[in-house]
Write a protein that binds this DNA or RNA. Structure first.
Lengths: 146, 146
DNA sequence: GGACCAAGCGAGACTGAGTATCATCTCGAC
DNA sequence: GTCGAGATGATACTCAGTCTCGCTTGGTCC
């Protein structure tokens, strides 16, 4: 079967990038994550499960994966940064503030709303970022209040 | 007449916060800015125009203003942070990537789209952030290409 | 299979944003 | 004018992310 890490490695190859052992390792570390994760977490994981993997390499690989669209960076409400593994080309994320799980959000009329904004303001909108934070159904059931 | 800095100082007073000289100074520095600005820029301005104003104070005041809704923090595509002065309670920003000028974006169907997202995913969406980047009408006219 | 070399790697120094600490100062109430 | 809570400024600190540099390695060409 194809694991999530496979998707990463195959995409790296397909892009004509070198498929090195450290890159495989980072792909596996990310694949083992559910939901979003920070660079710091990944570095910590690497320290435990793949000693010898350098900090700079984790950042470099994360950057490569981001360029390849395998991973997307998002901005937490706290001001920090996190990453999520993702498939589709352009989309948005809905992150559970309780368990950290992130889902890709399809466009339910958002594009139209954005076009309307562009039309009214006269701006030519080049890019945008939308991030949603909330609680996933499971966490809502699990802990009524928290 | 009422300057932008006045709005800041009056809001600070109205909130029951102390209206100190450094806070006034920061308010003036912000009022003198057009569009978005970074904390680093503000610190640099302070160094020039208001020597003696501490770095920590700029950050603290920026935090206070953010809490009071006078200023909002946004995340640049580069990963950095910037601030914009703003009035309305909840809204989004459209930042010109050329001149830096930011306009507040009203809700042209965005809320409805977000509700639809929440309904479909089952998430209870607590907060979101939307930032738009593009070129303002003036910059489009001014420099056809750049 | 072996040689070659550009790309990638690891270690660690560096940078810069933002925070914490603490002694001193000042706003504003009385 | 006095006083105390809260703000300030200087400075040390933390931590994410970047840069540098000598070494290693993946992939290609023979």
């Amino acid at each position: 079967m194809h694991t999530a890490a496979d998707t990463f490695t195959r995409t790296v190859e397909a892009a004509g990038e070198r498929l090195t052992a450290p890159r495989r390792a980072v792909a596996e570390l990310i694949a083992a994550k559910r939901g979003h994760f920070t660079a710091a977490e990944l570095v910590a994981d690497a320290g435990q499960r793949r000693p010898g993997l350098g900090r700079a390499t984790v950042f470099r690989t994360l950057e490569l994966f981001t360029q390849l669209g395998l991973v997307e960076r998002l901005d937490l409400p706290t001001g920090g940064h996190a990453y999520v593994a993702c498939q589709t080309a352009h989309h948005h994320h809905l992150v559970c503030s309780s368990c950290g799980r992130a889902v890709d959000v399809e466009d339910h009329g958002l594009a139209a709303a954005l076009e309307e904004v562009a039309r009214r303001t006269g701006y030519r909108v080049d890019s945008h970022r939308l991030e949603l934070f909330g609680r996933c159904p499971a966490c809502q059931r699990a802990g009524g209040t928290a």
